[in-house]
Design a protein around this nucleic acid. Structure first.
Lengths: 157, 157
DNA sequence: CCTAGAGTCTGTAGCGACTACAGGGTCAAG
DNA sequence: CTTGACCCTGTAGTCGCTACAGACTCTAGG
C-alpha cells in the first residue's frame, strides 16, 4: 500500500500524468494550471487536485481540444457554473470538425495511394508522383481567381 | 485568347495560385521559391515557371507534405536526379501517416460522439462530458509510467 | 562532512508554417 | 497632383510546446 501523504514535486507530477515538466510549467504560465504552493526552497508542491486537473487537460488535448477550449471547460469545472449546454455545443462542434477532418484525410488517402500505385519505380525517367503534384486540376483553384485573372490580363494587355 | 506576355507581380501570382502574398515571400526567404528578377523599382517579377513551382508547392502542402519534404521533392524536380525510389518511399510513408491519422480520428470520433450522446443537457447538475474528461481509463497512460511511479513511491516512502 | 549527480528554478529562444503589422516606396487613374 | 492600391523590408505574433543556459537545492555514497 503506497501512502502518498501530502505534496509531490513537478517531476513526480510529470511522471504521474505523462505530461512533460516544461509543459506543466508552461500550463501554469498561461493559466491553465494554478500556481501551486512552493516549498521553502521555491520548489512547486503539487497535490492530488493538481494531478486530477492536469489529467483533465491531457485527456482534453488528446481529444483535440485547444488549450483555449480547455480553459473554457475548466471555467465550467471551477466555477460550478455548469452551463451544460455550452459544453455540449463545444463538444458537438468539435465532433463536426473531427468528422470533416476524417473526410478530408480519406480523400487525401485516395489521392496519395493512387499516386503511389502509378509509380513504376525506376522504370521510366518521368515520375508520376511528381507529375501528379504538378498537374493542374482544372476547377480546383479557379473558382474565384480565373475571372479576376482574365480581367487583370485583358486590362494589363 | 489571353496573352500573358512576360512577367507578373507577386499579387497576380498570389491570385493565380491562391497562395498568400506574404506566404510567397516567406517561401522565397526559406528557399522554397527562387528569388525572382526584380523590376527597376525593386518589385518581384515572376514568370510561368514560378507559377508552376508554386502550384506544385501548394498542391504538396494540401496533400500534407511538410515544406521540408517538398524541398526534397523540389530537389528532385530541379536536379533531374529523379531518384524515383526516394519519392515513392516518401509518398508511401506519408500515406501510412495519413492512414494512422484517420484511425486515430475515428477513435476520437467515437469517444466524442459517446460523450455528446450522454449529455442530457441541463437536466442534471453533473456534466457527463466533463466527467468523461476527468475519468481515468486504466491502462491508457500507465503503460510505462505506472512502474516508474511505483518504484519512486516505494523508494521515497 | 563533502561531493557528485539528479532534480528544480527562471528566463529566453526555437520549432513549423505561416499571418499581421509598421513604416516606407511606387504606380496608374482621375 | 493627389488618392488609393499595390509593393518593399523587417519584425513580431500565433499555437503548443520543447530546449536550452545558468543558477540553485536536495539526496545518496564515500
Amino acid at each position: 500500500m503506497i501512502k502518498q501523504i501530502d505534496g509531490f514535486s513537478i517531476g513526480v507530477l510529470s511522471e504521474r500524468s505523462g505530461v512533460n515538466v516544461e509543459t506543466i510549467r508552461y500550463y501554469e504560465k498561461i493559466g491553465i494550471m494554478p500556481s501551486p504552493v512552493r516549498s521553502a526552497s521555491g520548489y512547486r508542491v503539487y497535490r492530488l487536485e493538481h494531478a486530477r486537473r492536469l489529467h483533465f487537460v491531457r485527456r482534453g488535448r488528446e481529444l483535440g481540444f485547444s488549450l483555449d477550449e480547455l480553459r473554457g471547460l475548466l471555467l465550467v469545472v471551477d466555477g460550478h457554473t455548469c452551463s451544460c449546454r455550452e459544453v455540449h455545443e463545444l463538444t458537438v462542434q468539435h465532433l463536426a470538425d473531427i468528422r470533416q477532418k476524417i473526410k478530408d484525410l480519406r480523400r487525401l488517402e485516395r489521392v496519395m495511394s493512387d499516386m503511389a500505385a502509378q509509380c513504376t519505380r525506376d522504370l521510366v525517367p518521368e515520375c508520376p508522383i511528381i507529375d501528379a503534384l504538378f498537374e493542374m486540376r482544372p476547377g480546383a483553384y479557379e473558382t474565384g481567381y480565373a475571372r479576376v485573372r482574365a480581367e487583370r490580363s485583358s486590362k494589363s494587355k
